[in-house]
Design a protein around this nucleic acid. Structure first.
Length: 515
RNA sequence: GGCAGGGUAGCUCAGCUGGUUAGAGCACGGCACUCAUAAUGCCGGGGUCGCGGGUUCGAGUCCCGCCCCUGCUACCA
């Protein structure tokens, strides 16, 4: 049993969870569940990024302490992940004591292994007193901060710790070029290579004015102790989650996969690996930069306030339908769109009409023609055809080509379509009218094949729609839980003797909604 | 501005190194069937392959120009 440690980006504690957060967690959850069905010893980490200026300011605006604010948000996020069926094994928060200690240990380890990688330098830039932070050109319009146009920006210098990122350009380029799986999809990899070609600048490792954070473990030569800046505060969560520097952190580290948004692949494939290299620690095996979900095709401007309410989406057809829709409709390697219309269409055509109805008709026939007990039957064409789709399903999921969840789902659904074709072609209701031994045997064969197909579908779709997959598994009378199954066992799956139980429809068909 | 990717049926997309009448799913229309969640199966209508040139016996597929969209171009995360 090989270990599989996968993570998602930690979410910034500055507002409620939105569609983008959910998409990433759902995608990573499907991968985690997929790995478990392969038999891997999975550890799935998610969490919250709780330090920084914005948290401090938001808390102040609400009249609460930063800690109270992040405590509340952590609860809100956690509740949403539970609701969406995210099977995380660990929820890390950067305000955890263990994380704080781990960050400091990591920094000290860099000082120890590569003393020259940290150095003092003046950081200078336009500083907005209103924001209490430095502003980049993009945030400055006509010489004023866009958020505080009445204030005057000040050119400020402060002495900080800097990390010598520039030193790792060759190392990083080599890694990206020679280990293609290190960053996928390829478009992201090319962007990072381009970025490196343009030259890497050193990055700040500490800030003076920042208060809500982790104390940088070394004082400046002036004696001042500063606060650890974002990269060194947030990114190490993946490492500190293992218990680093204590316990047997090395048993879990390095991470096998970081699932992150395409907007932060840079941090995960440039800065983070350089930090680890500087500390003489193993690098993560893979980083996957997924795309974004747009909403309704609209330009989601801040003014229009267009935003998807996650609870509303889950309320509509349940968490699994929402999971299915996002992962089927939005390519995991590119952007896609959420719209209520498409959600309704997908729900009815794929889940209700195809899959739910296939289960319903098969179970009904086993009850009607065989008293609910699945007869014995040898494998046939349908099993062989399914095997092709299953191979393609794995090829899309196992990382060799990246994590193409939408493709894997397409393959699983191809098996469902085949099941419906099979019923129509075999016409079990016609066979049932025959009153001879051959007819009896033929019907046994067809029903056994159909139940076998459905059971396989339950396993294949379990990573994506875990609750519904289990519901089907139960209705088929299959033993144990679907999540205890292994892909290895699919080929020899034998439903003979299972007692089916027709329960609630898996996905009740929805009438055309007005939404 | 630079670099990268993309513009193919109403919608979401396949179309490898150029080659018979451009494909799939959904949506739409007709037919069939009745085990089933009025579900399923079969057949069908529907496309100036962003625009304009060029190379070639032949281009959605190569070259040039143009238009449009998206991403990256680093200290909010």
């Amino acid at each position: 049993m090989s270990k599989y440690f996968l993570t998602t980006a930690i979410d910034y504690a500055n507002g409620a969870p939105h569609l983008g957060h959910a998409y990433e967690k759902i995608g990573a959850d499907a991968i985690a569940r997929y790995r478990r069905l392969r038999g891997d010893d999975v550890h799935f980490l998610i969490g919250m990024d709780e330090h920084g200026q914005k948290v401090e300011q938001t808390a102040a605006a609400q009249g609460v302490t930063p800690q109270a604010l992040v405590d509340e948000l952590a609860g809100v996020f956690c509740a949403m992940w539970e609701r969406l069926g995210i099977s995380f094994d660990q929820f890390i928060r950067t305000t955890d004591d263990a994380h704080r200690a781990g960050v400091q240990a990591l920094i000290l380890r860099i000082f120890e292994h590569n003393p020259d990688d940290f150095y003092e330098k003046a950081y200078e830039g336009w500083y907005c007193v209103g924001c209490e932070s430095f502003k980049q050109d993009a945030e400055i319009v006509e010489g004023k901060c866009v958020l505080h146009p009445t204030r005057t920006l000040e050119w400020v210098e402060e002495r900080n710790w800097f990390f010598r990122l520039s030193r790792y350009a060759d190392f990083l380029r080599d890694r990206l070029q020679n280990q293609p799986g290190f960053l996928q999809p390829e478009s992201r990899r090319n962007e990072m290579l381009g970025l490196i070609e343009g030259g890497l600048d050193d990055v700040s490792a500490s800030r003076s004015r920042l208060k809500w954070g982790i104390p940088f473990p070394r004082a400046l030569s002036s004696g001042e102790t500063q606060t650890t800046y974002v990269w060194f505060d947030a990114l190490p969560n993946y490492l500190t989650a293992t218990g680093f520097p204590g316990g047997d952190w090395a048993a879990r580290w390095p991470a096998d996969l970081h699932v992150v948004g395409k907007d932060i692949t840079r941090f995960h494939t440039i800065i983070w690996p350089a930090m680890l290299k500087a500390a003489d620690l193993p690098l993560p095996e893979r980083v996957w930069g997924h795309g974004f979900v747009l909403f309704g095709g609209e330009r989601f401007s801040k003014s229009s306030g267009v935003r998807l309410d996650l609870d509303e989406a889950v309320d509509k057809y349940g968490a699994d339908a929402f999971r299915y829709f996002l992962l089927r409709e939005v390519p995991f390697d590119a952007d896609g769109t959420f719209s209520w219309e498409r959600f309704d269409e997908r729900y009815n055509s794929d889940l209700a009409n195809s899959w739910g109805n296939l289960a319903s008709r098969v179970i009904a026939m086993v009850e009607k023609y065989r008293g609910g007990v699945v007869p014995a039957g040898a494998s046939d064409e349908a099993d062989r055809a399914d095997a092709h789709d299953i191979a393609a399903y794995h090829a899309a999921m196992d990382g060799t080509r990246g994590f193409l969840l939408h493709e894997a789902l397409g393959r699983a659904m191809a098996c469902v379509t085949r099941g419906n074709e099979y019923v129509q072609t075999m016409q079990p209701w016609a066979i049932a009218k025959r009153d001879d031994e051959d007819g009896r045997r033929a019907l046994d064969h067809v029903l056994a094949s159909l139940v076998r197909q459905l059971a396989r579908q339950a396993v294949l779709l379990a990573p994506f729609v875990p609750q519904k997959a289990q519901a089907l598994w139960t209705q088929l009378g299959a033993p144990g839980a679907v999540l205890e199954q292994r892909f290895d066992g699919l080929a020899s799956l034998d439903p003979t003797g299972w007692k089916v139980v027709k329960g609630e429809g898996l996905f009740p068909r929805a009438e055309k909604s007005a939404k």
